[in-house]
Amino acid sequence: MPLYAAGWLVAMITGPRLSPRRRILLVGALLTLAGAAALLQNGPAYLGHAGVFSFALAAAAWLFPALWAVLLGLGLGAAQALVLWAAPGPLSWGLVGDLFPAVVIPVAVTLLIRLVVQLGQAREEIAALAAAAERDRLARDLHDVLGHSLTTITVKTGLARRVLESGGDPERALAELRDVERLSRQAHSEVRLTVSGRRRPSLAAELAGARAALRAAGISPILPPSAAHVPAELAEPFAYVLREGVTNVIRHSGATRCEVLVGDDWLEVRDNGPGQKAAGPGNGLSGLAERLRAVGGQVEAGPLPAGGFRLRASRA
Rank of each mutant, 00 (worst) to 15 (best):
M1C: 02
P2I: 10
A6M: 13
A6P: 00
W8Q: 10
L9K: 11
L9S: 10
I13V: 09
R17Q: 12
L18F: 05
S19M: 07
R21Y: 04
R23Q: 13
V27E: 00
L30E: 02
L30A: 05
L31H: 05
T32F: 06
L33W: 00
A34D: 08
A37I: 01
A37Y: 03
A37V: 10
L40F: 07
L40K: 09
N42I: 02
P44K: 03
A45N: 08
Y46N: 10
Y46D: 08
L47W: 04
G48K: 04
H49A: 13
H49M: 07
H49R: 12
A50M: 04
F53N: 01
A56D: 00
L57C: 04
A61N: 03
A61Q: 01
L63G: 06
F64Q: 01
G75A: 09
L76G: 01
Q80P: 13
A81T: 13
G89T: 11
G89I: 07
V96G: 03
F100S: 05
F100Q: 06
V104F: 15
I105A: 14
P106Y: 07
P106A: 02
V107Q: 04
I113R: 11
V116N: 05
V116T: 08
Q121P: 00
Q121E: 11
Q121H: 14
E125G: 10
I126H: 15
I126K: 15
I126L: 15
A127R: 15
A127Q: 15
L129K: 12
D136C: 04
L138E: 12
A139P: 03
R140L: 11
L142T: 10
L142K: 06
D144T: 14
S149W: 13
L150S: 12
I153K: 11
T154M: 02
T157A: 12
A160Q: 06
R161W: 11
V163K: 03
E165Y: 09
S166V: 05
G168D: 01
D169L: 14
P170M: 04
P170N: 00
A173I: 07
E176R: 15
L177N: 04
D179E: 12
E181S: 14
L183C: 00
L183K: 09
S184T: 13
R185M: 02
E190Y: 08
S196D: 10
L203S: 01
A204Q: 15
E206M: 06
E206I: 04
L207I: 06
A208I: 04
A208C: 06
G209A: 06
R211W: 13
L214R: 11
R215H: 11
S220L: 13
P225W: 00
S226C: 09
V230W: 02
V230G: 08
A232W: 10
A235G: 01
F238P: 01
Y240V: 02
V241R: 03
L242S: 00
V246L: 08
N248L: 14
V249N: 01
V249Y: 04
V249I: 12
S253C: 05
A255H: 00
D264A: 14
L267P: 00
D271Y: 01
N272T: 09
N272S: 07
G275L: 07
G275Y: 06
Q276N: 08
N283M: 13
V295W: 09
Q298H: 12
Q298A: 15
V299R: 08
P303H: 07
P305C: 09
A306Q: 15
R310G: 11
L311F: 08
L311P: 00
R315T: 14
